[in-house]
Simulated scan of single mutants.
Amino acid sequence: MRVYLPAILSELQRESPVLLAPRIAHGVTPALRELWPDEDDEGWEYAAQAGAADGSLILLAGAPGAPPLRVVVAADVPEGCVQALDDPPVPSAVELVCGVDLSQMVSVHVDEPAAADDVAAAAAGDEAALDRLEERDLLWYDVTEIPQIPVP
C-alpha cells in the first residue's frame, strides 16, 4: 500500500534512514474517496500527500533545530502495517505501525529552500504563512538523491 509519511529532513539524513513507527501517515482511504467521489487516483494521492505535508509542519514545530522544510516520504508498505484510526484528524490519516526503511521509500517530496521562512512561520502557527505554503508544490526527489536535497 502506498502511504505518504510526514517527516523532517534530519530523519532522512542518517546513513541508513528509518522512519520509526507508530506514526500518523496518509493514504487513499475510503473516507477520502467518499469525501471527493468525483476525483481520480491521482487527485486522491495528491490530497494524501498534502495531508502529510501538513503533518510535517507539526513535526517541525517540535524540532526547532531541524531544517525548516516540509518533507513527505512516499513509501510502499505491507497492508498489515497500516491501520485505520478511530477518529482520524483528516480523511487521509492512518496509523503506520511498522518502521519504514530506505528500501520501502519510493520518493521524497520537499519544499524548495526559498520556502523556508514560510515553513518556519507556519510551523509556529502563522496562518498567513500556511496559506502561502498551500500555493507551493513540493519538489520531487528520488530516494538516491536524499543527500543532495538542498537545505536553507
Rank of each mutant, 00 (worst) to 15 (best):
M1I: 05
V3S: 10
V3I: 14
V3G: 01
Y4F: 12
L5V: 04
L5N: 08
P6W: 04
P6K: 00
P6T: 02
A7F: 12
L9T: 10
L9M: 14
S10N: 11
V18E: 14
V18W: 07
V18D: 02
L19A: 09
A21I: 01
A21E: 11
A21V: 03
P22V: 10
P22W: 09
R23T: 02
R23V: 03
I24F: 06
I24S: 08
I24E: 15
V28D: 13
L32T: 12
L32I: 10
R33W: 07
E34H: 08
W36A: 05
P37D: 09
D38Y: 08
D38K: 14
E39M: 09
G43K: 15
E45Y: 03
E45W: 06
E45V: 10
Y46G: 15
A50E: 13
A50S: 11
A50C: 10
A50W: 06
G51T: 13
G51L: 03
A52K: 08
A53L: 12
A53V: 13
I58V: 10
I58T: 14
L59P: 04
L60G: 03
L60Q: 13
A61K: 15
A61N: 09
A61D: 12
G62Y: 08
G62D: 09
G65F: 13
G65P: 04
A66K: 05
P67H: 06
L69H: 15
L69T: 07
R70G: 00
V71T: 05
V71K: 00
V72I: 06
V72P: 04
V73F: 01
V73P: 01
A74P: 02
V77M: 15
V77H: 11
E79S: 13
Q83D: 05
A84T: 07
A84V: 06
A84D: 05
L85K: 12
L85W: 10
P88A: 07
P88Y: 00
P89N: 02
P89M: 00
P89W: 06
S92A: 14
A93M: 06
A93D: 06
V94S: 00
V94Q: 00
E95T: 05
E95A: 09
E95M: 12
L96W: 03
V97E: 06
V97T: 05
C98T: 06
C98R: 03
G99K: 03
G99F: 07
G99T: 00
L102A: 08
S103P: 02
M105K: 00
V106N: 07
V106R: 15
V108P: 00
V108Q: 02
V108G: 02
D111V: 10
D111G: 10
E112F: 03
P113I: 04
P113Y: 01
A115E: 09
A116T: 09
D117L: 08
V119N: 12
A120I: 04
A120M: 01
A121Y: 04
A122H: 11
A124E: 13
A124S: 09
G125C: 15
D126K: 07
D126S: 08
D126A: 06
E127M: 11
A128C: 05
A128T: 07
A129P: 12
A129I: 09
L130A: 12
D131P: 05
D131E: 14
L133S: 13
D142A: 15
D142C: 14
V143Q: 01
T144I: 13
E145F: 03
I146G: 10
P147V: 01
P147Q: 04
Q148V: 15
Q148H: 02
Q148W: 03
I149T: 11
I149A: 08
V151T: 14
